[in-house]
């Protein structure tokens, strides 16, 4: 191939004659908008912000990864499946004496033993959302210690409550204690922060992670996977969720934080949960294959 291959930086497309900004002044307002309690105008329709830019990682998933993952995870089955075995419940459901007892099948729960659904074109493993979560122990004694991590998650994710007019956009949420833990935690005490990412923002976060953060982490060869001898019906391996942890040093490698690292009083690490649509046996492996395709490195111990 040529000496200077065209890998990489591409010139911006040639500028076209038309402008993306309206060049003429907006039309005259005949009927002014109603104003809310704060004096701000209320638009006549609900305004939702949709995609503001093409997402490179999302394109990569839909152009290349999805096909490959379908071929890799396809399991051929000749004919329809047998109906699942009917396992007797522990107590007779008709018996009024045991009516309100938890009535499990004999032999315990079969949650982890569910087989994966039949492979098809529409259940190829895909990311549903990414949750970033951080716990700050110091927040128990003084809740202002949570401010730094909250702002850090906001800077990384760009999510705000109701952002873009979306009711479902929750922004960075404070995580509170649920149970009382002797002498340390009480219910309702703020202990951490979390944020959910979906859609293009989720893919942008993954590309930031794999291109800026992970390659610059010191002495990091990849996320360690559980041993292959591990049972494949544990709750985590059938849920299709992959959870990774980043140390406090990694936070400063995010470009959004690196630009003004001094603004954050103390850095904490974070957990990242990649939540996929995979379910049934082998779901976590499918989710790892997907992440591996997004260039997240995994190693065996």
């Amino acid at each position: 191939m040529s000496a200077a291959p065209a890998v990489g930086r591409a010139a911006a497309p040639a500028r076209h004659a038309f402008s993306l900004r309206p060049s003429r002044p907006p039309p005259k307002i005949r009927k002014p908008l109603k104003r809310g309690d704060k004096g701000l105008p209320i638009p006549r329709c609900k305004i939702l912000i949709r995609d503001t830019h093409p997402s490179r990682m999302m394109d990569h998933y839909f152009n290349t990864l999805q096909d490959d993952l379908m071929y890799m995870t396809y399991v051929h089955e000749s004919g329809p499946r047998k109906p699942p075995r009917q396992i007797r419940l522990k107590f007779d459901p008709e018996d009024p004496y045991t009516k309100n007892r938890a009535n499990m099948p004999v032999g315990g729960s079969h949650v982890g033993r569910e087989p994966a659904p039949v492979s098809s074109w529409d259940n190829v493993v895909r990311l549903e959302r990414v949750q970033i979560h951080t716990m700050v122990k110091e927040a128990v004694s003084n809740r202002t210690n949570l401010l730094g991590p909250i702002m850090m998650l906001r800077a990384i994710s760009g999510e705000t409550e109701g952002g873009g007019g979306w009711r479902t956009s929750e922004g960075v949420q404070v995580v509170r204690g649920v149970k009382a833990i002797g002498g340390w935690l009480r219910p309702g005490v703020p202990i951490g922060a979390k944020v959910d990412l979906k859609g293009p923002k989720m893919y942008d976060f993954i590309s930031t992670l794999t291109e800026f953060v992970l390659p610059r982490l010191r002495e990091f060869s990849g996320f360690v996977m559980p041993a292959s001898s591990q049972q494949n019906f544990t709750p985590s391996s059938v849920s299709g969720v992959v959870s990774l942890g980043l140390p406090p040093e990694a936070m400063g490698l995010f470009p959004q934080i690196e630009v003004n690292l001094d603004a954050y009083p103390a850095t904490t690490g974070m957990h990242i949960h990649f939540i996929t649509n995979a379910e049934g046996q082998g779901a976590q492996n499918k989710a790892r294959a997907l992440l591996s395709g997004c260039q997240v490195p995994f190693v065996r111990k």
């Binding site: 990489g8 591409a10 305004i47 995609d51 503001t52 830019h53 394109d59 409550e161």
Partner: peptide
Amino acid sequence: APFLTRIPSRFERAFHAYQQRIQRALHN
């Protein structure tokens, strides 16, 4: 596999520019 990003169509570019303007005007 492709190694360059796709050039967005004229419609896509106009759509993205419009959404960016809304975002700039109405962000939290």
